[in-house]
Write a protein that binds this DNA or RNA. Structure first.
Length: 854
RNA sequence: GCCGCGGUGGCGGAACUGGUAGACGCGUAGGUCUCAAAAACCUAUGAGGUUUAUCCUCAUGUGAGUUCGAUUCUCACCCGCGGCACCA
């Protein structure tokens, strides 16, 4: 390009993204462009407030990942778009800063987690600012800061006061490598989620949160929120509400009774045995000799066998259970339960396929209609021929097979008609279920119950880098809450990180001295810390008032901003984080601190960005894309627009380096077009012409305006590209250019996506030092009539196949007869109509003409 | 096994409520510029056919169905991904 002599100031005709982005990052930071939401809380109008939340990141030493860039950019586009639409946007930022990686690093190197975490946060902060994510940095918080975890501890104590934080001895998943207890959800295929070591079982006294108090509301509340349906399904499944019946069976020749839970009492005429979990109370009572066994039972032998089996079952690791799969084992107790329906004696076995934690830990066996029961009977009949268990068919399925059940393929569980079941015969199983339940309740044999799969939340962790549990024990070992004036109950720093199998906090002299000084001699602190999910399940409340030292957040501020209007979160947090956050919200509401039921009104997930090879990015595969490098080469705007252009936000998409260049080309063309426009002499204030570009501009404004709220950023960008193509072609053609307003509108459209470039162009256009930021301007509106095409091209089909097309003026759109006549006149259509009989004519206005011939 | 999501050119992906499949971008080929390369720009680009055209045939995982018309709706199946998993 040649330099224009007439240009008043030197306008750089080359898109220098480095200079532009550096300049505006500094200017914005100096102006504190988006740093006012905390002060504004009193002016927030309910109808206009918009709380946009990004699931805060764990600041890992590796720095920002391109996946972070995707979701942060998406949310930032929403923030900028809605601000330009006049909404009051709350867009906070913080760090999920407690956690294992920093601690593991400390074990390896001795560098304290506080130090590495601070460094990692600094890196993240620098990278995020470089990407122009328009967070309100005054909200910034970190869960490892005493000013934050003081209130995590406060929350614990509130739960403790209400009896919702309690201690219990429980078998827990123990990772021998991390030397800590793991929550069920941190055990993946029998191995530790973090280090992959085999997980074993261990009995320990632990702290729990009683989330089960809210199970019904956690379920029903899902109907109020706008979340992806699959996510809701997963939560429902996790809570696992089931209707069934608890049936009591008396144990023959003893005083004992066994209660079994079942959802399928309809098959009870086919029940032929009972199985207890190894942890069942009756089993331990027998072992301890607390049960008067009938004389027929060889007590010593049975007790010995049971003891051995129970011991072996307890020792089994999750992994062993997995690899054994469905292979059955078990021990006969010598006892029998009476089936009240058939008066048959059912042998009572102990087997580890029955889970102690579900239902009553005892199951009534119907081998004909439950695969597990059938497998168990196969095991018994094979290994204990003298203890044969009968298989009775009580349901006939749709295949009509009513022969004796001898193969597992014949065992069917969920449909059919009752047989061999007296008063249930002939009924469909779905009718039989309520009928037998009524019968059992009337005869005192059982009681309808609802059970849940959801367990209370085990929050104790034998780790260092977490929030200390604010509990102290008196010399008798009785727990007491840490007094309010002693919060924050500081995490000690004089600890040995090396794992010993005990909580690292035990090694802190200061911690013990502090406790004794404040509470008395012989007093000890709780040495465990909290699961980091506790920290991360209430942070969205603290954001509104992150420096408050008197309360976890000011009620007025909470009222102004909450609940969260839009939550962007990775699919990996679907179950736990969301469930826990909802639990805290409901608890705090019940304590009068909050006035809403659900914390996250609308939620969406971002997909994963894969390596160029289509596989998940990982260091070992060497397919990791570093966002810093992309920014250095092409600029943050290109990185942002590229990631938004890759495809639908919630899909997994592979990285493509050449497509990045394609986006860069697009932004450069925009820059050159706008600058070229300004450099041309005739640019001033021509009236808006009715040319094709102007029409397309209005269509583009409409498209972008519609697509952004739907998160369809890829198609919004495609529309802007199309507009630029047309505009450029017109300029090359020498056709009349756009007027300045149109150019401005386009720059505004681009602003949420490429904030640096848009700002630069905006100021070039305005050419005044005092011009305000493009990001503070009003979103452009479009003229609906102008956006409309004045002509439409419609297809003409003969027998369903496209044979021609027809362009008509929009006003003629509804003149059915004329349009069909014109369609028939087309020569390309004529030859298909010739010598054939026209049987049907269809016209869908503005869409298609369809002719049917014979 | 159960629950959920998905399958469209060489690639990422478009397609409103059933109405012209392949927008936009990448890649590729040819060209322009250049001593040359890169970059940039221009043209073409689903596959196949022939009479090279305002042409025809095929084509949205497979097979059927509904319809004037199906990527879109229904049924059956195949494949891939994610989650749960001996939950009674």
């Amino acid at each position: 390009m040649t330099k224009k002599q007439s240009a008043p100031a030197a306008i750089n005709t080359i898109y220098d993204h480095q200079a532009i982005e550096k300049k505006w990052q500094t200017v914005w930071e100096d102006q504190e462009l988006f740093q006012h939401s905390l002060k504004q809380y009193q002016q927030v109008e309910a109808a206009k407030k918009l709380y946009l939340l990004f699931a805060f990141a764990y600041p890992s030493g590796a720095g920002l990942h391109v996946g972070h860039v995707e979701s942060k950019t998406a949310l930032d586009i929403l923030a900028r778009y809605y601000r330009m639409q006049g909404q009051q946007v709350f867009f906070p930022v913080g760090w999920d800063a407690f956690g294992l990686p920093a601690e593991n690093y400390a074990i390896k190197t001795g560098v304290p987690p506080a130090k590495t975490t601070k460094k990692a946060i600094d890196t993240f902060r620098r990278q995020i600012k470089r990407l122009a994510i328009s967070y309100d940095w005054q909200t910034e918080l970190a869960t490892c800061h005493p000013g934050y975890y003081q209130w995590t501890q406060w929350l614990f104590l509130e739960l403790y006061k209400k009896g919702l934080a309690y201690q219990a001895k429980a078998p827990v998943n123990w990772c021998p490598s991390c030397q800590t207890v793991l929550a069920n959800e941190q055990v993946v295929e029998g191995a530790c989620e973090r280090c992959d070591s085999e997980v074993s079982q261990k009995e320990m006294k632990q702290w729990f949160f009683k989330i089960t108090d809210y199970q019904d509301e956690l379920l029903s509340g899902l109907d109020q929120v706008d979340w992806p349906e699959p996510t809701k399904q997963q939560q429902r499944h996790w809570i696992g509400k089931k209707q069934g019946i608890e049936i009591s069976y008396s144990v023959v020749d003893t005083q004992e009774e066994i209660v079994c839970f079942t959802t399928r009492p309809d098959t009870n005429f086919g029940a032929t045995f009972v199985v207890l979990a190894p942890e069942h109370q009756l089993v331990s009572q027998i072992i301890k000799g607390q049960v008067n066994l009938p004389e027929s039972v060889k007590a010593t032998a049975v007790i010995q066998q049971l003891r051995a089996y129970v011991k072996q079952a307890q020792k089994k690791t999750e992994l062993e259970r997995q690899t054994e799969g469905r292979k059955k084992s078990g021990v006969f107790t010598g006892l029998y339960a009476l089936n009240p329906l058939t008066n048959k004696k059912m042998p009572i076995w102990v087997s580890d396929f029955v889970l102690a934690g579900f239902g009553t830990g005892a199951v009534v066996g119907v081998p004909g209609h439950d695969q597990r029961d059938f497998e168990f009977v196969e095991f018994v009949n094979r290994s204990h021929p003298q203890q044969q268990i009968e298989v009775i068919r009580v349901v006939v399925g749709s295949d009509g097979d009513d022969s004796p059940i001898t193969q597992i393929e014949q065992v069917q569980e969920d449909h059919g008609t009752m047989i061999n079941s007296e008063f249930l015969n002939g009924l469909d199983i779905h009718q039989a279920i309520p009928k037998i339940m009524d019968y059992m309740e009337e005869h005192g044999l059982g009681k309808r119950v609802t059970i849940y799969k959801l367990r209370d939340w085990l929050i104790s962790r034998q780790r260092y880098w977490g929030t200390p549990i604010p509990i102290v024990y008196d010399p008798d070992g009785k727990p007491h809450p840490v007094k309010k004036e002693h919060l924050p109950w500081l995490l000690p720093t004089d600890v040995d990180f090396k794992p010993t199998g005990e909580s690292p906090l035990r090694s802190s002299k200061e911690f013990i001295q502090r406790t004794e000084k404040l509470y008395g001699k012989g007093w000890r602190p709780e040495f465990d810390t909290m699961d980091t999910f506790v920290d991360s399940s209430w942070y969205y409340l603290r954001y509104t008032d992150p420096r408050n030292q008197q309360e976890f957040a000011n009620p007025q501020r909470l009222k102004s901003w909450l609940p969260v209007d839009f939550y962007m979160i990775g699919p990996e947090h679907i179950v736990l984080h969301l469930l826990y956050s909802r639990f805290f919200t409901k608890f705090l509401r019940d304590q009068g601190y909050l006035d809403f039921d659900e914390p996250f009104l609308k939620m969406r997930h971002q997909g994963m960005i894969l390596g160029p090879d289509g596989k998940k990015m990982s260091k070992s595969k060497g397919n990791v894309i570093n966002p810093d490098k992309v920014v250095a080469e092409f600029g943050a705007d290109t990185l942002r627009v590229y990631e938004m252009f890759m495809g639908p936000l919630d899909a997994d998409k592979p990285w493509d380096a050449s497509s990045v260049r394609g986006v860069y080309r697009f932004l450069r063309r925009v820059y050159e077009l706008v600058i070229g426009h300004l450099n041309r002499a005739d640019q001033t204030s021509k009236p808006l012409s009715n040319g094709q570009v102007v029409q397309q501009l209005h269509q583009t404004i409409k498209k972008v305006t519609d697509d952004v709220p739907k998160l369809k950023f890829n198609t919004a960008i495609a529309a802007m590209m199309e507009f630029v193509n047309t505009w450029e072609a017109q300029v090359k053609d020498g056709s009349p250019a756009l007027d300045l307003t149109a150019v401005q509108n386009f720059v505004q459209l681009l602003a949420p996506f490429a904030p640096f470039l848009a700002e630069e162009l905006w100021h070039q256009i305005k050419a005044a030092k005092t011009a305000k930021s493009v990001h503070l301007t009003d979103w452009p509106s479009y003229d609906a009539t102008l956006a409309q095409q004045n002509q439409v091209t419609i297809g003409v089909q003969v027998n369903g196949k496209l044979r021609g097309e027809l362009t008509i003026d929009l006003e003629e759109k509804d003149h059915q007869k004329q349009v069909i006549a014109q369609a028939k006149d087309l020569s390309s259509v004529q030859k298909w109509l010739k010598d054939r009989q026209l049987v049907k004519e269809i016209y869908v206005p503005g869409k298609i003409v369809s002719l049917v011939v014979k």
